[in-house]
Design a protein around this nucleic acid. Structure first.
Lengths: 325, 325
DNA sequence: CTGTTAGCGCGTTCAA
DNA sequence: TTGAACGCGCTAACAG
């Protein structure tokens, strides 16, 4: 049997309350009795039971993290940011994948609630009423991470994706591109991708060309982009993700043209992929790690009742110029 | 205030024991009273408190997952596998990154213990005595995931990396390679990488050439491999990871040679990177998702006292032939 | 500064 | 088939 706080109390010849006090620093304890307690703890190699603690204090020091899919590079990087800051503030994270399915996302809020998480970091492609309802019912502090809440009801951390789209288009325009197309995942699937597209579109005088690259997978996107390039005369491509950017570069090469001479390619995100292509990709870099880190930090502020200035944090994005433009 | 089991009991005009019974199916309850309870639960939208439940039952239905770094593609994929199976068996996972630091890994076992996790899925580059001691002290069921335990003390799920290394070398040899080099992260850092190298070496009659690509990052590896290629005449390259494979391909091209005509390149793992290079990489594919899924499944067997045949699961690897060889 | 005493919300005997 | 009562290990008043 593993030792409890009672065992420590007996061993140190004090009451369990005193043990609790030195454990939590919740009140002043005389130095020598404190030392006795510490010794007893060490002798018994006592570890406080976080579950009992959670029940008594109503705070579990664990945060629920709900994401579409950790195995996506972008997401994994975000999760890393979340976990790092969580660790700093002595929290653990419970991680769940939703596969971007609303029903599952809503269910997860429920099970996270059962687990008594102190807060939630939430990542979804498209925030809907069901989500907001679930948050309200669960009464858990939530921070949206790299996801948009058009109505700004829920605190969130993101970049201005529409502006980012404009910046991308402007960049290409300034470098002489005349006809720019936007390559994205299935429109309607991801708000981020849609906003970026809107940003691009808003800069164009020509009719807006958009390529639906399905789920954004390299393999499926490649032939779609090739087909598009055979039918349309373009000299600039903006892609919703790095993976699509990579597919775009290869597609351009496949139809016998050159990047960046014939067609300039500019991608979103700046995952490690961006530097692993030839030519290396110019990108609108997203602060993925910071999405996670800042979200979690914001959440800790809520949990500790620290004052917060902005509930809707807009992180800066920036263009990293490389050889594909 | 959120409803408790007492509220439900009162609402259904039964005792809390009965509510607990219908909740857990732990004893037969008359159909109509069961229905009353269910109705009451729905009416109050009652959710059992998992923390209280954990304290009373001594099982939390949460699993600790300790990995070097989720943001690595390989790891993220493994974690996805773990989480999927955990969900199937109604477990949640607490995820922590260790950055491959032994001290942190050991500490994490301790904090996971405090959290009363029911089990641990553990991933580390090099299992050491400190780890095993920590496991023993914590008395938690552990399954090693994609990590070697040379002494087979701890249950594990892995492939035979040495054999995989031999297979890679054999493959190249059969295709006419005469001088093969192995490109790896800092030797001694990862047991997996070392074993693969040993496998490669065991097939070679020529002296074994090994390139220390530091931490295995594309950017730092690239110039190192270029330098190596300028000094050595080789016609085959095996790399410890996909990222290094990509660097190798580009390095070959940078020194004015062709893949696969002049030098064949063969990588390990088969992350999505493998198909995103030109030429696409031939790889020894690792079942990353399965590492996670099978580990977690094995752990559930321990937790449910199911019989298990093998404590050391060796998953099959296979060569995926593409254009780089 | 320290000890006593209630709970926290639930599982689980033991009787009835 | 159901209920009463105890305990899981700890925090948090409240006394002293």
């Amino acid at each position: 049997m593993t030792a409890t706080i009672y065992d420590v109390a007996r061993e140190a010849k004090v009451s369990m309350a005193t043990v609790s006090r030195v454990l939590n620093g919740t009140a002043v304890v005389r130095e020598d009795t404190k030392q006795r307690v510490l010794d007893a703890i060490a002798r018994l190699s006592y570890r406080p039971n976080a579950v009992a603690r959670g029940l008594a204090s109503k705070r579990t020091r664990t945060i629920g993290v709900i994401v579409p899919d950790v195995s996506a590079a972008f997401v994994a990087e975000v999760v890393r940011g979340i976990e790092d800051v969580a660790t700093m503030y002595d929290y653990h994270i419970i991680l769940s994948n939703s596969d971007a399915q609303v029903q599952r996302e809503v269910d997860l809020v429920g099970t996270m609630w059962e687990k008594q998480v102190d807060g939630l970091v939430y990542m979804t492609n498209r925030l809907q009423k069901e989500h907001v309802d679930a948050f309200e019912q669960a009464q858990i502090p939530v921070v949206l991470c790299a996801t948009e809440d058009p109505e700004r009801r829920i605190p969130s951390v993101n970049v201005d994706n529409q502006l980012a789209g404009r910046d991308a288009a402007t960049y290409l325009l300034e470098r002489g591109c005349k006809r720019i197309a936007y390559i994205t995942t299935t429109p309607g699937f991801s708000v981020l991708a849609d906003l970026r597209g809107q940003g691009v579109a808003s800069c164009l005088s020509e009719p807006f060309l958009q390529v639906d690259a399905k789920h954004g997978q390299y393999e499926t996107a490649l032939p779609l982009i090739q087909a598009f390039l055979r039918e349309h005369e373009v000299d600039g491509l903006v892609t919703a993700t790095d993976e699509l950017g990579l597919a775009a570069i290869h597609a351009v090469q496949d139809v016998g043209k050159s990047v960046p001479n014939d067609i300039k390619v500019m991608a979103f995100d700046n995952t490690r992929l961006a530097v692993m292509v030839r030519p290396e990709m110019t990108v609108v870099a997203q602060p993925m790690y910071d999405f996670g880190a800042v979200s979690m930090r914001l959440l800790t502020k809520f949990l500790q009742d620290e004052p917060v200035e902005t509930y809707t944090v807009v992180l800066p994005h920036n263009i990293v110029e490389r050889s594909s433009t």
